[in-house]
Design a protein around this nucleic acid. Sequence first.
DNA 1: TCATTAAGTGAACGGTCGTGCACTTTTTCG
DNA 2: CGAAAAAGTGCACGACCGTTCACTTAATGA
Lengths: 206, 206
Amino acid sequence: MMYPPKASMEGQSKGDRTRAAILQAGLEVASTEGLEAITIGRLADRVNLSKSGLFAHFSSKEQLQLEVLQHGRNEFVTRVIGPALAETRGEPRLRTLLKNWLGWNWSNDSRGGCIFLQAAAEYDDREGPLRDALVESQHDMVEFLVGAAALCVEEKHFRSDIDPRQFAFELYALVMAHHFHIRLLDDPTAPKRTRKGFERLLESAK
Amino acid sequence: MMYPPKASMEGQSKGDRTRAAILQAGLEVASTEGLEAITIGRLADRVNLSKSGLFAHFSSKEQLQLEVLQHGRNEFVTRVIGPALAETRGEPRLRTLLKNWLGWNWSNDSRGGCIFLQAAAEYDDREGPLRDALVESQHDMVEFLVGAAALCVEEKHFRSDIDPRQFAFELYALVMAHHFHIRLLDDPTAPKRTRKGFERLLESAK
DNA sequence: TCATTAAGTGAACGGTCGTGCACTTTTTCG
DNA sequence: CGAAAAAGTGCACGACCGTTCACTTAATGA
């Protein structure tokens, strides 16, 4: 009796805990460097496992990547979508969404990346299950934005002739530009510009 | 005397022609799959050379990538920036710029990619000469946009209180969203939405 | 507690990568 | 034409990759 599982880990076997640690480490790597940058050896070092020890948790590297992506979706729902849904429909929800979305990052340093935007560049030209899963997640994301914009129309926060899909397109555009300016150009004014663009977008929809 | 150089290639040695073919092939690969997807062997096959034969033209793979990126910059200037500069300053120049920008692609199929946006995702977290070169090119790009917007103010096409840098941010945002929707989501309405966003952007600046 | 099962290890495989080198072939030019 | 220089080849190397497998170690539950 040396290292009994802590009470806080109740109901989780050792394997489950290790698996969770792997997926979390994978998400961190994928968010900054991409899903293709995930390497069994590198990830094994990060969680203090041997290559084969880590590999044994998954049937293939692709399966590992798929589960990392799914973990990213879960975390995004928890940290961004959920808080927005808890807000009043219409404009307030949209504002909460953007706030949490811009704070959605994973790395330890101050320039965290987005696993979805990284993966989008990696799989926009490649076929296979990973691309399919990514496309599905981004389709869902767009549809959520469209729905959120449609609610603004419904709640009379927007004019009735506003096209929710066009609104969603332009909102996502701003978030992408934010990511680009922060991460590549290291531009500290990016959040301010993103919010300003957002305000203009809202204003022209009213 | 079997295969004399054609007259059209006058002034170019065989080595120069091979080099140009390599850079062009490299640009095609980099535009769709990224600069990191460039592999000596793959590129050698594409231009019918042996690995070492191709390698002999460059001092390292990194140097090859740098030259491919530079080739991309040159092509972008020729095909996008140039035609815009030939147009009247202000709004007409901006419209020409966007038109050619959206047509800026390199692949054979209908979903050509942009070497800069691909590379942005690849190097936004990595240090080194490649990132430096990319950042410089994108900095220049942004400054060109800022200048083009500033000319709109100067020509009284825009209100005098319009911030050119904010305008540039939002314009680039639309182009990024275009790329994303075309390539990942395979959305044929992307050009229409991009132009609609552009019109709204212009309208709110007048 | 102790046998059963789960979790993790280490070495090895075939494959691809960038790079170096000795060599052959082709181009170039006096 | 023929020699010098340029261009291209073939092979090998060390490093890292994903994956397999026989094995050891640790966790689990009756």
